[in-house]
Design a protein around this nucleic acid. Structure first.
Lengths: 229, 229
DNA sequence: CGATTAGATGAAGGAAGCTTCAGGTTTGGA
DNA sequence: TCCAAACCTGAAGCTTCCTTCATCTAATCG
């Protein structure tokens, strides 16, 4: 279950009896509810506890502090999304490039837009926590999966793949965020998916068609002036 | 100077004498300094005032509250970046598609990565303030500029342009954010620029090559199953 | 050179909310 | 049944920080 690699955010105590297992889950769900109801800025531990039907003290028995609680929520959310991405990558390994792209985009978009409200609310949490570290950890797994998938493409430049994977992830994340923060109308959701198909498809095909350089790959160490695409 | 369209964030008093003009600027700069020094979460009005060499009371004479101050900082930052983008669009109107893409990417990347530390620190501010509204206002201007530029491309589907422009902006913003939050090494900066050239170039060329549909544009109302890119 | 306006001060009020802990209740096994 | 461990309670301590305002100094003008 992906050990939290951040100090001070580990659960304080692990539930033993069934009663407390339910309590912990109730607190977790309540955190999401409160997030949706009043937003990240006005989310307080007391409010979360009240919503969960327990007292604050109980909350602090399982989460050492407010951050830890929010961290757990964010973590589960991200895990869900990138698990979907990883699976799509695994399943598309032997397929043609265009289908890889489509599968990747569809997996991400579907997962990310499943619970529009939650996705949106969690952007604020991400900032509070300095979620960058968590995000980068989760992204890294997705990145590896994408690289593994793309390595199956014949003739592709392998050394560009890690950064290309990061580009794909951050492009999908960035555009989705934009759509979410703008309200995520049904039309926008549809457009997002279709344009991402175009965008990622075109990018990957161009990457695959890139000529093999003699000595200087795309990520070159020796500075030569850039001239055009 | 782009009237702040958000209530309660307007300056409380406008400097009249030269002395106070300097004070206001000092406070503004101090806010950035403190942001870089201790981060958004630990930025307090007292700290900012101290760094500016004035007392808290003075700060509150010009900024009605802490948010207003941070809003001003974020606003100037975004204005700077998207002014560069707008200019690039204006200058590339008659050029070929590939050069449009390159100019757009270069303008954005150069502006955004100019002050890596500031860009990075402001992500937290964006969240505190619900900067989404501000961002969308600034993005809208950039979007219009991009659309105007792309409309010069012969044979391109005009009705896809607004969303395409949003895709370009949010792609650039998303990938840049990723690079910034990962530390923005020189290598990553270089890769970002070059991959954005590939990505945006490929996307735009594909958009331009899109066949004109009979009745159903890309944003179609009647659901037909998707089959491949 | 007064009078008036602009600008600056910073101690203190006050709100908000995280976290603790001393003491109660429930559970489950012996 | 009885006890120890698990679990729960919630008032209160404590910290942090935003914001105000009565008061003081500096600039400007007739």
């Amino acid at each position: 279950m992906a050990q939290s690699a951040v100090h001070g955010l580990e659960p304080r105590k692990t539930p033993v009896q069934a009663r407390s297992t339910e309590t912990v889950e109730a607190i977790f769900e309540a955190a999401i509810q409160v997030l949706l109801a009043v937003g990240s800025a006005r989310l307080t531990t007391t409010r979360v506890a009240a919503r969960a039907g327990v007292s604050v003290g109980t909350l602090y028995q399982y989460y050492p502090n407010k951050q830890a609680l929010l961290y757990a929520v964010l973590e589960r959310h991200l895990e869900g999304i990138f698990a979907a991405v990883e699976q799509a990558c695994r399943e598309s390994c032997s397929k043609p490039l265009a289908q890889m792209s489509t599968a990747l985009v569809d997996a991400f978009v579907t997962a990310k837009l499943q619970r529009t409200d939650v996705s949106k609310a969690l952007y604020a949490v991400h900032a509070d926590l300095d979620g960058a570290r968590l995000v980068s950890r989760v992204h890294q797994r997705a990145e590896r999966a994408i690289v593994a998938m793309l390595e199956c493409v014949p003739g592709i430049q392998k050394d560009t793949l890690p950064f290309a994977a990061r580009m794909l992830i951050s492009t999908m994340a960035g555009t989705a965020r934009h759509v979410l923060e703008a309200g995520a109308s049904p039309a926008a959701k549809r457009d997002l998916r279709e344009h991402l198909h175009l965008l990622c498809g075109a990018y990957l095909e161009r990457l695959a068609a890139l000529p093999w350089p003699e000595r200087a790959p795309l990520t070159m160490r020796n500075a030569t002036p850039k001239d055009g695409v």
